[in-house]
Write a protein that binds this DNA or RNA. Structure first.
Lengths: 343, 343
DNA sequence: GCGAGTATCCAAAGCGGTTTGAAATGCCGA
DNA sequence: TCGGCATTTCAAACCGCTTTGGATACTCGC
């Protein structure tokens, strides 16, 4: 192991107290002494043992992320990696660690309880909120600062969250398609037990209602977001007696599958049919290399991670403040996948 | 906070020693007493403070994962999420935490040093090894148990790793295409500064050489693995005077792009052209829903995560044992994307 | 009935830091 | 010269757990 504070102190002929204070920037220590201590610490490659430190201070300087794995289909949320990358930046800038718990949703409650009771984290980030997510009241009861990436419809008591305006985003996208003359518009959505997906559907319905169009259940597909799902949904939609001329896709990967179904049917994107996709700006799934392929509602999930982490750290520093919330708007960026209705 | 061991002991009228021993399964405690302690602990919802525990034992019961972000292109490795999910299962089964450090590759060395010096982890998992990866000698010098997901060509001293047999896998895939009568075979590979990509190319070249075919540099593309890259590569390859009749793709997402280029050109997969892809079995990127779409070399990265984590934990328990290594073979699974050469 | 052996429990000393309360030192004005 | 006040340092307690080295009581063989 490395040098301990006590050893460092004795080689300097000082008490541990003084050394600790010198290194932690307390005022009651002579400037020359402080310099001497700092030099010696660097020379000895001294790093305070984080476990001892956190035991003494009562803080762990770590944030917990719990990644739920649905036991039924065992899907790992693909946006998770980029969100983590963003959050990680903020944490390391602030000198915090990130501890990850991957738990099947059946054991979620126990996982949260453990994390808090064992004192291994100062705060918790909640991923992938569902409707009426029970984790939110649980964490509130546990009295630990936490932050939700997304929101949970049906949870009334206030809590801290960061979300994108999914409803407005999909409403605008739908309106845009309506403006282009499309009236049969399909929604190829994520699992609507997830809060974000439900809000997107509401936005879609808002726009249809505004335009006086009765929503057609046959045009609305929902499932775990994968390429094969996009393809299947696309094929099924095209097989309808009165097929849609425009499509909304909830993620880039779904859009890949959807595009395949459309082009398989000999349709050209942006001419024969229109597609708008939600683009999370995942680093490994760019929307084209320089010009956007798809018209898309864009919002960087990595940036969301950065911001959410900062907000959580603020909550950790001052747990008594009222909940922090941030609703980010998306950008509707024009690509080559939309055009006016020609059917 | 929760109950402390001392409090629990005093309510039970026992010493902390006995309570600690009762809960940790030491033999020198009366069976009845142990039962009493365990009941009381459960009733009081007692969880040992992990920081105190690890300070006392000298172990942190945590494993560090360092996620490198290349500062140049800021890509987060997409397989990371599934690997983490697998590793997380093993860790939580063993009662270990996982701490994540997301670091730009410029600060990597400092990140590893910190993690070790501050004693926040008992072992380290290394992701995405490059050729002659400098992290391996560094970790060896730091004297911390570590495990590499993949290997690093050019590092001669032994170290622990888990890898799939990329070379053999791509060699077999190439041989299979050769057997189908293809002679112009393209390789759409990942970044060849990454060790896995380099090995895949070697396997491809092995098979060509065996067949007496001179490799054509124009048939080999390499870049960060994205859908647009697959598409670009595919289009460029088809534009050749003597285009390939078969393609190897290094990841599912690249294959999506490749397929788009091929079908855009009016070619049918499995009839006009053949494609074999490497399938990491990512949960959110399945190779078809029930039957495989692509002929693929398959290996579950999640399973790799599970196994790698177990091996690392074994190293942590007994750091003096020789390095552990595991080379996993892939399965060549037939899908609809291959057929005999008809050009 | 007594010493050895065993089963069971405990007091106290760590682990490596932080922090409280007090002591030593130097400087000042009265 | 002396008390008062900063300034600077230190000894010791503490964070919550583990673990060493006894202590106590109880059994057993002779």
């Amino acid at each position: 192991m490395g040098v301990t504070l006590k050893e460092l102190a004795s080689t300097l002929g000082l008490s541990p107290t003084t050394v600790s204070r010198a290194l932690n920037g307390y005022p009651e220590v002579n400037a020359r002494t402080r310099q001497r201590v700092q030099d010696a610490a660097r020379a000895a490659n001294y790093h305070p043992n984080i476990r001892a430190k956190s035991l003494a201070t009562g803080q762990s300087r770590a944030i917990g992320h719990v990644i739920p794995i649905s036991t039924s289909h065992e899907i790992v949320n693909p946006i998770f990696a980029d969100f983590i990358a963003g959050a990680g930046e903020s944490y390391s800038r602030a000198g915090y660690d990130m501890v990850l718990s991957v738990v099947p949703d059946a054991e979620e409650e126990a996982a949260y309880r453990n994390l808090v009771a064992r004192g291994s984290v100062d705060g918790i980030m909640v991923h992938g909120p569902r409707l009426q997510d029970s984790r939110i009241p649980l964490l509130r009861d546990l009295g630990v600062p936490f932050m939700v990436h997304g929101r949970s419809s049906g949870v009334s008591a206030p809590y801290s969250w960061l979300d994108i305006n999914n409803r407005r985003s999909f409403r605008r996208a739908t309106e845009f398609l309506l403006d282009l003359g499309h009236t049969r518009i399909a929604l190829v959505n994520g699992l609507e037990t997830m809060d974000f997906a439900m809000r997107r559907r509401l936005g879609y319905l808002d726009a249809l209602q505004e335009a006086g169009i009765t929503p057609d259940p046959a045009l609305m597909h929902t499932a775990e977001m994968t390429e094969p799902f996009g393809h299947d949904a696309g094929r099924a939609l095209l097989a309808l007696a009165d097929p849609p001329s425009a499509f909304l896709a909830s993620s880039m990967i779904v859009a890949y599958g959807l595009r395949r179904a459309l082009t398989d049917a000999g349709l050209r994107l942006g001419r024969d049919v229109s597609v708008i996709v939600h683009d999370d700006d995942l680093s490994y799934m760019p929307n084209g290399l320089d010009v956007p392929q798809f018209t898309a509602t864009c919002s960087s999930v990595r940036e969301a991670g950065r911001k959410a982490a900062e907000m959580l750290l603020a909550l950790v520093r001052d747990p008594d403040q009222p909940p922090l919330t941030l609703l980010m708007e998306t950008q509707l960026v024009l690509g080559d996948s939309t055009g006016r209705n020609r059917t």
